[in-house]
């Protein structure tokens, strides 16, 4: 079954190489949700994430002749979405400014339990972090980039990347119990 869907994807990609509109539409619709999920990790606003997805697909269709079909398409798309998000962040950080606030906004929601932790919950939680913290955290913990690579991508010193990660983790430690009914208690106590 897996092989069949891979064959289908290969055919779509082959047709995309020929700039077939139908194939492009199929590819877009098939991977839209996945790309949006990645984009929401790096963009706070849904509108921005949608723009990133569209920009990413523009790149995908333009660069598809360079795609190595022996590698998974999802990984390639993920890299493009992340790079597009980082480009956008860099562009906006030149014009705007970033602030770090220590106050948290706990959304009006029912506290869940750890087993019910969904992607939406995580996204909402990460959105409480300042942009740069969130991006550094996602790149390091989710994508597995090193601080050197993050520094290079975001044009920041490696030491800053470490500091942002530490601060992000510290804030998440405070936020997590507020969001979910998890208590970090020493074993043996209550």
């Amino acid at each position: 079954m897996e092989q069949k869907s891979d064959e289908g994807l290969d055919e779509i990609i082959r047709n995309c190489l020929r700039k077939d509109g139908k194939a492009q539409e199929m590819l877009y619709k098939q991977f839209f949700g996945y790309a949006l999920g990645v984009a929401l990790l790096y963009n706070k606003q849904r509108g921005e994430a949608l723009e990133v997805v569209n920009d990413s697909f523009m790149k995908v269709f333009a660069e598809i002749p360079r795609f190595d079909t022996s590698k998974p398409f999802k990984a390639w798309l993920r890299r493009i979405v992340i790079n597009t998000s980082i480009d956008r962040f860099r562009r906006e950080s030149r014009t705007g400014f970033h602030y770090e606030n220590d106050s948290f906004h706990v959304p009006d929601c029912n506290p869940g339990i750890i087993s019910d932790l969904t992607a939406q919950d995580v996204t909402r939680l990460l959105n409480q972090l300042p942009d740069i913290h969130k991006i550094v955290f996602s790149l390091y913990e989710i994508e597995g980039f090193s601080h050197d690579e993050i520094g290079e991508k975001l044009n920041i010193p490696v030491s800053s990347s470490r500091v942002y990660l530490t601060r992000a983790k510290k804030k998440l430690r405070k936020l997590f119990p507020l969001y979910f009914s998890i208590k970090y208690e020493k074993p043996g106590k209550g």
């Binding site: 619709k29 839209f32 949700g33 990790l41 949608l50 569209n54 932790l117 969904t118 992607a119």
Partner: peptide, 30 residues
């Protein structure tokens, strides 16, 4: 340890996560 656990939970929640398709997105994109 807490950080590691948190990161693990986040990774697990986001693994292969996909959003729903937003109707009209392809038309907007085109």
């Amino acid at each position: 340890e807490k950080d590691r656990e948190l990161a693990g939970l986040i990774r697990q929640a986001l693994e292969d996560h996909e959003e729903a398709y937003v109707p009209g997105s392809w038309e907007n994109f085109a």
